[in-house]
C-alpha cells in the first residue's frame, strides 16, 4: 500500500478535510461563523421552496438520464453491428464532445436554441410556427442541451459492455423465432444493464451539478441546487446556509446514485445467475 500513500495524503488534505469543514460550517447560526446552532438546517428543511428545488434538481437529472438512454442505446445497438472501421468512427464521434469543453457545448446550444437560432430559423422557415419558439430559459431546452452534453458519459461504459457480449446470443434468439424487439428486451437489455447503469450514474451525477449549463440555458427563473449554492455562497455571502444546500446536494445525489448502482448490480447478478 506504500506507493498509494502520497495520493492518500493529498486526498486527506485536499478532499476529506474540506468536506469535513463544509459539514462544520453548516452548523453555524450566523454568517460571521461565531455562534453554533441548527438555524440554517431548520431554515432549509422547513421551507417548501427548498424542497421543490431539491426535487426539481433530481428530476432534471432523471430526465437527462432518460433522454440520453433513449438516444444513446439505439446508437450503441447500431455501433455493435457496425464494421470495425465504422466502430472506430462512431466511437470517435461519441468521445469527441467529451473533449470539447462543457462551456463550449453549452454555448453551442445557445446558438441552436436562441431566438434567432438554428431551430427557430427552421421552424419559421418551414412555416411551422408564426412566432419564434421560446426554448432558452425553459426546462425543455435545458434537457435537450444536457442530452448532448452528457451523452458521451453514457456511451463509453455502454459500448464497453456491448463489445463484450456474444453475438451468437442474438442469432440464437432470432433462430428461436423471437422478433428483434423481443430480443432487445429479453436478451440485450439484461446483458448490457450493468454498463447502462454505470453510464446512467455518470450522466445523473454530471447533469445535477452542471451549474453553467443550468444557469446559462435554464436562466434565472429555473432554480436548481447548484445555483442556490452559488447564490448563497458568492452573492449573499451566507456560508453556513450555502454549506447546508451543498450537503443536501451531496446527500441527495449520492442517494440516487447508490440506487442506480444497486439496480445495475442486481440486473448484472441476475444475468450471471441465469447463465450458471
Amino acid at each position: 500500500m506504500g506507493p498509494a500513500l502520497p495520493l492518500g495524503l493529498a486526498y486527506l488534505a485536499f478532499f476529506v478535510a474540506p468536506l469535513l469543514m463544509l459539514v462544520a460550517v453548516s452548523f453555524y447560526a450566523d454568517d460571521k461563523l461565531t455562534v453554533l446552532g441548527f438555524d440554517n438546517w431548520r431554515k432549509f428543511l422547513f421551507d417548501s421552496f427548498h424542497w421543490k428545488v431539491v426535487t426539481d434538481t433530481l428530476l432534471l437529472g432523471l430526465k437527462a438520464v432518460c433522454a440520453t438512454v433513449l438516444l444513446g442505446l439505439p446508437l450503441a445497438l447500431v455501433w455493435r453491428g457496425a464494421s470495425p472501421f465504422w466502430q472506430r468512427v462512431l466511437l470517435f464521434v461519441a468521445v469527441m464532445p467529451l473533449l470539447t469543453s462543457v462551456v463550449v457545448r453549452t454555448f453551442a446550444w445557445i446558438v441552436i436554441l436562441g431566438r434567432e437560432g438554428v431551430v427557430n430559423q427552421l421552424v419559421l422557415g418551414l412555416g411551422l410556427a408564426a412566432e419564434p419558439l421560446r426554448l432558452l430559459q425553459t426546462e425543455l431546452g435545458l434537457v435537450i442541451s444536457l442530452t448532448q452534453i452528457e451523452m458521451p458519459l453514457l456511451l463509453l461504459p455502454l459500448l464497453s459492455v456491448m463489445a463484450r457480449f456474444d453475438p451468437n446470443l442474438l442469432d440464437a434468439s432470432a433462430s428461436l423465432g423471437a422478433s428483434p424487439w423481443r430480443t432487445l428486451f429479453k436478451v440485450v437489455l439484461p446483458l448490457v444493464a450493468p454498463g447502462l447503469a454505470a453510464g446512467a450514474l455518470l450522466v445523473f451525477a454530471s447533469a445535477t451539478t452542471a451549474f453553467i449549463s443550468q444557469s446559462v440555458i435554464g436562466g434565472g427563473r429555473l432554480v436548481y441546487l447548484p445555483s442556490l449554492v452559488w447564490q448563497q455562497a458568492m452573492i449573499n455571502a451566507n456560508w453556513p446556509f450555502a454549506a447546508v444546500v451543498a450537503i443536501v446536494l451531496l446527500v441527495s445525489v449520492s442517494a440516487v446514485i447508490a440506487v442506480i448502482a444497486l439496480a445495475g448490480r442486481i440486473a448484472g447478478g441476475r444475468v450471471h445467475g441465469a447463465a450458471a
Binding site: L7, Y11, P18, M21, L202, T208, L225, A246, L249, S254
Partner: peptide, 25 residues
C-alpha cells in the same frame, strides 16, 4: 474500499466539493 474512495470525486457533485475547498482554504 480504497479504490472506491479514490474514484469518488468522479461522481460526487463537484460544486459541493468546490464550495468546501473555498471554505477550507
Amino acid at each position: 474500499v480504497a479504490d472506491a474512495f479514490f474514484m469518488s470525486p468522479l461522481v460526487l457533485p463537484g460544486l459541493a466539493f468546490g464550495l468546501a475547498a473555498l471554505m477550507y482554504f
